[in-house]
């Protein structure tokens, strides 16, 4: 049985790299990624599971890193926005201006990335089901929608 009563060193697998990090039982994954690993691409927007700005992929599945203990991520693969580079989805967000202030953007991109990987042919209803998990206050969602569509087309 894994016990964590104080602090202990663990290995986290982040963006394909093994990172040694000291974790306590109350450490939330979002805080560990940001404060201990310097991966600040995931944002605290609410720390309450509501906004999706903190979204990361856990074994390819989007999750809200503010609602997960860091110790739970041991033995899993974590992907943060820093782990994506020049992907079709990112290019599409650039070309369709799928962001304004950019604070929500890593969450939207990671969620879209996972969606199009799992369901390349996702229709509007499925896209909405996935993306309604993220809040964007700037764009009115239109350019985000266009970006997702563009990425979907370009991946075909």
């Amino acid at each position: 049985m894994l016990k964590l009563e104080d602090i202990k060193t663990f290995t986290l697998n982040v963006n394909g790299e093994k990172k040694s990090v000291i974790l306590g039982p109350t450490d939330v994954l979002l805080d560990v990624l940001r404060d201990k690993l310097g991966l600040t691409g995931g944002k605290p927007g609410c720390e309450n599971g509501d906004c999706g700005a903190c979204t990361v992929l856990l074994d390819g599945v989007p999750i809200k890193s503010c609602l997960m203990l860091a110790v739970e991520a041991v033995d899993h693969e974590i992907t943060t926005i820093e782990g994506l580079s020049n992907t079709v989805v990112q290019d599409a967000f650039v070309n369709e201006a799928g962001f304004q202030c950019g604070y929500c953007t890593s969450g939207f991109i990671l969620n879209t990335f996972a969606l199009l990987k799992e369901q390349p042919e996702a229709d509007d209803a499925v896209i909405t089901e996935w993306l309604e998990a993220n809040i964007c206050r700037c764009t009115g969602y239109d350019d985000i929608k266009n970006a997702v569509k563009l990425a979907q087309n370009n991946l075909r």
Partner: peptide
Amino acid sequence: SPDKVSGRVKYLND
């Protein structure tokens, strides 16, 4: 654009 889609923009809390 490139910085915002790669999570590299440093906002204050970063």
